[in-house]
Write a protein that binds this DNA or RNA. Structure first.
Length: 218
DNA sequence: GAGGAGATCGTCT
DNA sequence: GACGATCTCCTCT
């Protein structure tokens, strides 16, 4: 099933975020740190649109802060929030049109020790599922785990071969996508623009109660 | 287990 | 000068 990860093409992101979001689930975010690869599988995203979407940073028009959202597709838009956290988005749509996808949660795939160190959870036990969740189950958490910051990564091309922050496809197939309203916003809060891999344990928020018929996934 | 508050700063009004 | 696409810790039940 899975194969050697391949870089996504820019054309993948040159579409409406609502189209790209569900397809982005199951792909890998890969941080190259020297020889080390730190990777996580995308299990939760939110689409943010342009002027019509009041919750989007692009809604107020183009500013120095959100310029990446208006630029070419496949680039990293990193913003700083609550004076504490960074969050990672990938720009969508062609140069001149605003749109992006917030990466809200990852399932750790490789470099778990490095993630734990970056999160200052050095004594975390990677064999305990509820401990692993603390690494990347939330936008602020995953940015910290991958050492993503605005000064370092904003505007970075995520589909360039030489980039140290990339989006890749290893052939993983998502079985079921669930769609819900977005989290933590007040404007346009009713729009169903949050996409998650149904039943995945690394989705942010309170751990989902597993249904009795839930088949443990591999 | 649930709920609330504090942290802390860039960005825009 | 206000506030935000969040997380953690603390208190109360």
């Amino acid at each position: 099933m899975k194969r050697e990860p391949k870089l996504l093409r820019r054309a993948f992101f040159n579409r409406d975020p609502r189209i790209v979001s569900p397809e982005l689930l199951g792909k890998l975010i890969v941080r190259s740190d020297g020889r080390k690869k730190i990777a996580g599988r995308i299990v939760e995203v939110e689409a943010y649109l342009g002027a019509d979407d009041l919750a989007a940073h692009a809604a107020a028009g183009r500013t120095a802060r959100n310029a990446v959202l208006w630029g070419p597709p496949g680039h990293a838009y990193i913003y700083f929030i609550y004076g504490v956290h960074y969050c990672l988005n990938v720009s969508c749509l062609p140069d001149g049109e605003a749109g992006g996808i917030l990466i809200r949660a990852l399932e750790p795939v490789s470099g778990i020790r490095e993630m734990a160190k970056a999160r200052e959870l050095a004594d975390l036990d990677p064999t305990m599922p509820h401990e692993l969740r603390k690494l990347t189950s939330g936008p602020g958490r995953l940015a910290e785990a991958l050492s993503i910051t605005r000064p370092r990564d904003n505007g970075k091309d995520m589909v360039a071969a030489e980039s140290d922050l990339q989006v890749m496809d290893d052939g993983y197939k998502v079985e079921e996508v669930a769609v819900t309203p977005r989290i933590g916003i007040t404007k346009s809060a009713e729009l169903p623009l949050r996409y998650v891999i149904a039943g995945n344990a690394f989705v942010s928020g309170k751990p989902q109660r597993l249904k009795p018929d839930f088949k443990k996934q591999r």
